[in-house]
Design a protein around this nucleic acid. Structure first.
Length: 819
DNA sequence: CCGGAAGCCGTTTTT
DNA sequence: CGGCTTCCGG
């Protein structure tokens, strides 16, 4: 069971505690037994500490006072964090409930819980205050909602709700929402909240920048509206607790007393609001030590563009006087070449505390980091595909390989290629489970049942499925509700008693109101999963998808079932709603052996035996916009991103750049990234021409931009490299080896359509068997990526197809359908 | 209410 | 160029 927030009593979580915090055990009382135990413990290193290196151990054992752990990539950061917690528990310095441990993502929180569980044994039932900034914020707010003008059953709005709400507000103010898009304003509000700014505090310039000086006014209107809706946006989950603590020192003092140890992971990613939040909780009265431990890596700060303040970590020692700083630089992940390359690159940054990763690993067989050139992105994908096949032949698992791109549009080329080659892949990132239409609809039903003031939920589902409650009726109802300052559901309840609506609409609305009344009355008594199912059935929502004849229908019904199933892990509807608002992960299919494709941003924290880093070209990486908008610090963040990319690799790192890339539909020649020039020759080699340097007959482009450039002062002017340029041959045909099935997994992608973004799990072409193909030469077929074409030849399950637009390709038959 | 057509934009993403 | 959104018309 995943523990909800409301099952945990406030101060006496620990049965042993009987209402009082435990006496710290560092000074054993005078009893003989106690002294004996202390003596024994002094001579024995607990198991969990042995095996740590000296720095890690210092980070674990420095318990009193502020501590900053600068943990380089692959230096055992999570191990230190979890061991530290285990150590605090084992030495009896605090109960699990007296530790506040904050992470950025739910994934990180989950991982930490698991690993603590392994260390401490099942004894610790999670830690109630281990979670993301936001989930802990929710927990605080549920307890003290009334102090910030909310009720404790408040709703949490996601970005989509927020935009819709803002749009309404903009329109209500009589502002042209074309000229002043709600989305943009939502972004501005988010930015202000990241900085911890109330409407009164936003800079005058910002306030003027939107809608002819109405920025502040709109922000105020938005906050008022949220209050009426009894709702929070994500920013509020941080800001309300800050307000609450500032306005209620007594409440803050309770938490000061409660949290004996505070831990923050990924400190380099904290924004100003999170920083203020932390300062409030960490700054105790004079005399008591601030047991704050922040762990982070300034070299891996890659979220400046969304409000993260690297400065927080750079300034730690000033903020927390007397802080100890421990650097973890011994790397357990990568080869010396990989570390050498990454280290040399990141040394070009000025704004850093300065760390150098090292390893004892000495293996002459280790590969250097390899830089490859390709003619264009298609060739890049083809060559990467060939390398992957090569590795596969050497028995490397696809799960150990990843392609990390700067921008998601780069993924497509690789996907296309892998589909063609039959290489399994999974795409990580993008829209997720909870964002799917049917999930959001279902959630709106549940939200409205448990929080009747949630007008956004009401408006979302009042006419879904269709009930004949069109725009006119809804607008009437909306006005009616606003005029009386009551929620729309309540307004609906009133209005059906009047004759303001046409009989048909009135009846439909009556049914809706009656349904919700009934469901609300069941909320307390009926198990929430049963209720959820009943809601979806009785509302006609399930039936709506059952009646849907399109291809998506069945999938959506499956997703709804999955939603209900996932509710079982929660104790209440409320707990479940919080979970879905805050935790957006989709589960992965771990069974499937597949190459991972993701952005560099989502790769942070992961590691792979082999990493491919395509697209190292000026303009793409570093990205032009980062340079334009961020100047030097923008460039440095890009460089950190490159550093993150390289340091994901354990054994092999292959970097690519192309000479021509299609940008917004136009072919442009591109220059190799400056980051390539910043790699050290000692650890990097430039690939000789390996296999095909085809250009698919694009011989005319043979003059590469490259050849016209100033001579490179590094390896790219080597003979091998020049030969690579010269040796471009005509296209080699696709190289079909025999291989078994193929599967595509879309982790976290919702919605299907022409470009399917569904998790497909195992699918499509199961084998290379000799089973006779169900296609015949001459068949007219359709392929998802290549469009329509005619079958030209068949070998087993592989078809050669002349596509109308894409030319001749060889494709597994599972990927096409007969027209 | 649905669907075609026109227009717009074009990093990175969590909560 | 092309994908996605939005808008208007049937």
């Amino acid at each position: 069971m995943i523990s909800g927030y409301d099952d945990i009593p406030f101060f006496d979580e620990d049965p042993q505690l009987s209402g009082k915090p435990p006496a710290p055990k560092e000074k054993p009382a005078g009893g003989i037994a106690a002294r004996a135990m202390a003596a024994r413990d002094a001579h024995r290193t607990p198991d969990y500490l042995s095996g740590l290196n000296p720095e890690q151990r210092e980070a674990v054992e420095t318990l009193d006072g502020p501590l900053l752990v600068l943990a380089g990539a692959g230096t055992g950061k999570t191990r230190v964090l979890t061991t530290r917690i285990a150590h605090i528990l084992a030495t009896g310095r605090a109960y699990p409930s007296q530790m506040l441990a904050v992470t950025f993502t739910n994934k990180a929180a989950r991982e930490m819980k698991e690993r603590i569980g392994l260390l401490v044994g099942g004894a610790v039932e999670g830690m109630p205050w281990l979670g993301t900034f936001h989930s802990i914020g929710v927990k605080l707010l549920r307890r003290h909602a009334e102090l910030v003008g909310l009720r404790s059953d408040f709703s949490i709005l996601d970005t989509d709700d927020v935009v819709r709400l803002i749009k309404q507000i903009i329109q209500a103010e009589g502002i042209d929402d074309k000229r002043w898009p709600a989305k943009q304003f939502a972004g501005m509000i988010d930015g202000w909240k990241n900085k911890g700014l109330d409407p009164a505090q936003i800079p005058e310039g910002d306030a003027r920048a939107f809608a002819n000086g109405k920025g502040r006014e709109l922000y105020i209107a938005y906050q008022n509206r949220l209050k009426t809706l009894n709702a929070c946006d994500f920013g509020d989950l941080l800001l309300h607790p800050i307000r609450l603590f500032r306005a209620n020192p007594d409440v803050l003092a309770e938490y000061h007393q409660k949290f004996r140890y505070i831990l923050v992971d990924e400190y380099q990613d904290t924004n100003t609001a999170q920083y203020m939040w932390l300062r409030l909780l960490a700054q105790r009265q004079k005399g008591t030590p601030q047991n704050v431990c922040c762990v982070g890596d300034d070299d891996q700060s890659i979220y400046g563009w969304r409000g993260a303040e690297v400065d927080n970590i750079l300034r730690f020692e000033k903020d927390f006087p007397g802080a100890r700083v421990v650097k973890l630089e011994r790397n357990y992940r990568s080869t010396a070449h990989i570390l050498g390359a990454a280290g040399h690159l990141i040394a070009h940054n000025e704004d850093r505390l300065g760390k150098t990763l090292f390893t004892d690993r000495k293996d002459p067989d280790d590969d250097k980091v390899v830089v490859h050139a390709a003619w264009d992105s298609e060739e890049e994908a083809r060559a990467v595909g060939e390398e992957i096949e090569q590795l596969q032949r050497q028995k490397h698992k696809l799960n150990d390989m990843a392609i990390l791109v700067r921008a998601s549009f780069q993924m497509r080329e690789f996907e296309d290629r892998f589909v063609t080659l039959g290489i399994n892949y999974r795409v990580i990132g993008g829209p997720r489970f909870y964002e799917r239409l049917e999930i959001r609809d279902a959630m709106a039903y549940f939200r409205l049942v448990s929080q009747p003031a949630d007008d956004l939920a009401f408006e979302r589902i009042v006419n879904t499925p269709k009930r004949g409650l069109g725009d006119t009726t809804i607008r009437n109802l909306h006005d009616y509700a606003r005029a009386r300052d009551i929620p729309m559901l309540a307004a609906a309840s009133d209005i059906i008693e009047t004759d303001e609506l046409k009989p048909k609409a009135r009846k439909a609305l009556f049914d809706v109101v009656t349904d919700f009344r009934r469901w609300q009355s069941l909320l307390e008594t009926m198990p929430h999963t049963d209720l959820a199912e009943q809601i979806l059935d009785e509302s006609g929502y399930t039936a709506m998808w059952q009646a849907d004849k399109s291809a998506e229908g069945p999938g959506r019904l499956d997703n709804l079932k999955e939603l209900i199933r996932s509710m079982e892990a929660f104790e209440s509807m409320r707990g479940f709603l919080d979970h879905v608002s805050l935790v957006m992960d989709a589960e992965q299919n771990a069974e499937l052996d597949a190459v991972s494709i993701m952005t560099l941003h989502s790769a942070k924290g992961l590691e792979f035996e082999t990493v491919f880093l395509p697209g190292w070209e000026e303009g793409l990486f570093p990205h032009q916009r980062a340079l334009d908008e961020g100047g030097r610090s923008g460039l440095e963040e890009e460089r950190r991103l490159a550093y993150v990319g390289i340091t994901r690799a354990k054994r092999r790192c292959h970097i690519w750049f192309v000479s021509n890339r299609r940008i917004h539909g136009l072919w442009q020649s591109t220059l190799p990234s400056r980051f390539l020039d910043e790699l050290p020759e000692a650890h990097v080699e430039v690939a000789e021409v390996e296999q095909s340097y085809g250009g698919y007959g694009r011989g005319g482009y043979g003059q590469s931009r490259f050849d016209k450039q100033e001579p490179f002062q590094n390896a790219y002017s080597t003979p091998g490299w020049r030969r690579a340029q010269a040796n471009r041959t005509e296209a080699t045909r696709d190289n079909w080896g025999s291989r078994s099935g193929h599967a595509v997994e879309r982790v976290g992608y919702g919605e299907s359509g022409p470009r399917s973004r569904m998790i497909e799990g195992e699918l499509v072409a199961k084998s290379t068997t000799s089973e006779p193909s169900k296609f015949a030469v001459g068949d007219r077929v359709f392929h998802l990526k290549f469009g329509n074409g005619n079958v030209a030849a068949i070998e087993g399950n592989k078809l050669t197809i002349d596509f109308d637009r894409a030319g001749q390709k060889r494709v597994l038959d599972g990927f096409v359908e007969r027209k």
